[in-house]
Design a protein around this nucleic acid. Structure first.
Length: 760
DNA sequence: TGATGCTAACTTTTT
DNA sequence: GTTAGCATCA
């Protein structure tokens, strides 16, 4: 038996050894799904399958990189570089680059990110004299995106009576028209948005039988990761590509389907067996990641969902600790609690920073954690948020580079035609746009004959100089690599100098960002290609890749730092210690999801995902109040808290943070009619714990937590007078054991949060 | 015409 | 609390 087969369990090995024919692997969280996929690919190659014939598709760059690395480790050589492995978007972009001319697109098409797309939509809304309060760019974009993911073009959208009724009911009957104009504009600009990379891929395979045959023949083996997250477009493409050989292997877990907002549909999993009669189904149900407690909690949570494929995930791992539920007064307290706890655990249990992850529902929640971690000098890595490539100065330089490759791209042309300022003002630009629209040509073409639109004097000279400059960059395309062109652009446009001369703090940061971008381009040109087939370090090839990256290449990936990210971004990852934060109604579950069963179930799957990221320690926290839109709001604890079975819960930290009365910031577990029944149950539980009999004495003064010592008599606002019997924990995160005698008994109280008065 | 300062809108989640 | 977009001023 091959070495790589030895540490697989029976089901895993069966999945690896199944070579020909359709295969569906239903893989629970932590069941070794990536291991199976990578071993399977290594095994195929070991059996003599040419890596050029293997296509492996993932959803994130992170997952693709990790897969590639693991395959290389198994193989012990670099044959893996010949595999077609990457995200749906990046692999299709590469293929489209070779085939786009078949549907009238230039091969050097530009890829628009979400911001680019929204600003075009905004312009169209303006051109149509529509109210942008009703036709919000984000809303229209989502609508168009959903249509594309269902393989509906603008014409089909307009002809679909159901969609038209929907839009009419939503008082937005013009979305179809906007879509049509958007579609035309992108085509004219030689640009595709993210969804087009799927849609146009489908279009080509559908329209050009020779292309379809070519890739059907090439991809003899197809592997799809996270199949539960595929949408209609992806499903159809895979189906077409795999139709000849039917060697399709999909891996998925319906319990972890969290991308329906992007058009993903679990139906694709259920459909798979119907599409391929002789599908072999293998279930991976042994979890190797988490403790029994964590897994039990996860299983219980997910069982609350009605729609799911039945499976029973189990583990041989030890029982482990209870799940710690933490209540804090504010979002800042939540941040402090997490930072304090990390500090303490590093001291006490010798954990590294990289063993911790703080996972939240929305990116906006990262602030309080960043602050508290910085204060405690804990290094952290923030994933997501505003990406490096979305910063203005980066987009400016990239706009030039894109324009050099594709001068018809009007959006990027407009972005930089007068930046840095070169005397091409608004009125000149307006004339160009007008001329371009009336003659059905592009702005770049108008620019070739600037006198034809009546430019004269300084404006004429400026326009001519701009054209000459851009053409000089274009002449470099053939011979020079991406870095040389980027450097020349930065220098000759005056863009780098402009930032260099800005000596403000922000200006300095922008200058550094531009340098970082140039360095990363340099690194790109100096790193050998992974495909092996072509050593294409051209600017065009560079730009192709860059738009699909969400982050700067993490060469500091092994840096010892706490990870901060959304739960979505954490899928597929695991950490010894996980803080699942912000478990509050309206936040998690999100306010957008409360009125629809399917949406709420997706939130619950998200909760399932976050719980199953943890190997041994899991904290779940919520704050009574937090800042949102600049003002303080109160949220009830999340209904999901009530779905955690009691025996697995450690609520030590929930009872000590509230004030004695029902005023001010103290939590008030309302039991009125508005409160969901699940919350009532939870509030009853907690109210039973707290005995509100005690009234604080008149001279009650809150003591500094560091003054509390063993043996002292202290007064608690709620529990009354007690004696400190022991203190545990680090100096900044001490927990006092206080005996409040009959009635309240022994309590563990976190000194950072509790308000105690020393009784003299 | 460009920079500065104020108001409003903003928060799901990602390629 | 943050940022984008608009209005106002130099």
């Amino acid at each position: 038996m091959q070495v790589y087969l030895e540490d697989l369990n029976e089901q895993q090995r069966a999945a690896v050894l199944h070579i020909n024919g359709p295969l569906m692997i239903v893989a629970g969280a932590g069941s070794g799904k990536t291991k199976v996929l990578t071993t399977r690919i290594a095994h195929l190659m070991h059996q003599g399958v040419d890596p050029f014939n293997i296509l492996a598709l993932t959803f994130t760059n992170k997952a693709a990189t990790e897969m590639k690395e693991r395959i290389e480790r198994i193989l012990g050589n670099n044959d893996a570089r010949n595999l077609y492995i990457g995200t749906f978007h990046s692999v299709f972009a590469k293929i489209l680059r070779a085939e786009a001319t078949k549907i009238g697109y230039p091969s050097n098409f530009t890829i628009y990110d979400t911001d680019d797309a929204k600003s075009i939509i905004k312009e169209i809304v303006k051109d149509l004299n529509l109210d942008d309060k009703i036709y919000k760019p984000a809303f229209v974009y989502n609508r168009i995106s959903a249509a594309k993911n269902s393989l509906l073009n603008a014409a089909a959208y307009i002809n679909d009576s159901v969609i038209q009724q929907e839009d009419a009911r939503g008082n937005r009957p013009m979305i179809g028209e906007i879509y049509l104009r958007y579609e035309n504009k992108c085509f004219k600009n030689g640009a595709m948005d993210f969804d087009d990379l799927l849609f146009k891929m489908f279009t080509i395979l559908h329209a050009a039988p020779d292309v379809l045959a070519k890739y059907q023949h090439r991809f003899k083996y197809i592997l799809i990761d996270e199949y539960q997250d595929t949408n209609v477009a992806q499903y159809q493409i895979i189906k077409m590509l795999g139709a000849v050989n039917e060697n399709i292997c999909v891996v998925g877990d319906d319990a972890q389907s969290i991308y329906s907002f992007r058009g993903a549909t679990v139906k694709n999993i259920l459909q798979f067996e119907k599409d391929y009669e002789d599908t072999k189904v293998i279930k991976l149900e042994q979890n190797y990641r988490s403790s029994k407690s964590i897994l039990e909690v996860a299983n219980t949570i997910i069982s609350n969902n009605k729609n799911q494929i039945k499976k029973s995930l189990w583990t041989d791992n030890e029982h482990g600790e209870k799940i710690k539920v933490v209540r804090t007064l504010t979002d800042n307290d939540e941040g402090r609690f997490v930072a304090d706890t990390i500090t303490e655990l590093k001291l006490r249990n010798h954990y590294d920073n990289k063993d911790f992850a703080i996972l939240y529902r929305t990116n906006a929640q990262s602030r309080s954690f960043e602050e508290s971690l910085r204060k405690m000098n804990i290094p952290y890595k923030l994933y997501g948020g505003v990406s490096f490539y979305q910063r203005k100065e980066i987009k400016d330089l990239l706009a030039y580079l894109r324009l050099v490759v594709n001068p018809n791209d009007e959006e990027n042309l407009k972005r930089i035609i007068n930046y840095p300022v070169r005397g091409i003002g608004k009125s000149s630009i307006d004339r160009m746009v007008l001329a371009a629209n009336t003659h059905g040509i592009t702005m770049w073409e108008v620019l070739q004959t600037p006198t034809s639109i009546g430019l004269k004097g300084a404006a004429l000279a400026a326009a001519e100089n701009f054209v000459v400059m851009l053409k000089s960059f274009q002449s470099m395309l053939e011979k020079e690599n991406a870095y040389d062109i980027a450097f020349a652009v930065g220098k000759q446009t005056g863009l780098v100098a402009e930032l260099y001369n800005d000596k403000s703090v922000e200006g300095l940061a922008r200058y550094e960002n531009i340098q970082a971008l140039l360095n990363s381009i340099k690194e790109y040109t100096e790193t050998p290609d992974e495909e092996g087939e072509l050593h294409d370090k051209s600017l065009g090839n560079y730009l192709q890749q860059i738009t699909l990256l969400t982050d700067v290449n993490n060469d500091d990936a092994d840096k010892d730092a706490v990870s901060l990210m959304t739960i979505h971004a954490a899928k597929g990852l695991e950490f010894p210690c996980v803080f699942s934060v912000g478990l509050e109604e309206n936040l998690f579950p999100s306010a957008m999801s409360l009125y629809d069963r399917a949406d709420l179930e997706e939130e619950r799957r998200l909760f399932y995902v976050v719980v199953t990221r943890a190997k041994s320690k899991l904290w779940i926290s919520y704050a009574n109040t937090r800042y949102r839109f600049g003002s303080l709001i109160q949220n009830d604890p999340s209904r999901f808290l009530d779905e955690i079975p009691e025996p697995y819960l450690d609520k030590t930290f929930t009872g000590s943070a509230s004030k004695s009365n029902n005023s001010g910031l103290g939590i008030q577990f309302r039991a009125d009619d508005k409160t969901p029944s699940s919350l009532k149950k939870l509030s009853e539980k907690i109210q039973q714990q707290a005995i509100p009999a005690h009234t604080p004495s008149a001279n009650f003064t809150i003591a500094d937590p560091s003054e509390i010592e063993v043996g002292q008599k202290v007064e608690h606002q709620k529990f009354g007078i007690g004696t400190v019997s022991a203190i545990e924990g680090a100096s900044n995160n001490r927990i006092a054991h206080i005996d409040f005698g009959a009635g309240n008994g022994l309590k563990k109280i976190m000194l950072n949060f509790a308000k105690l008065s020393i009784v003299k």
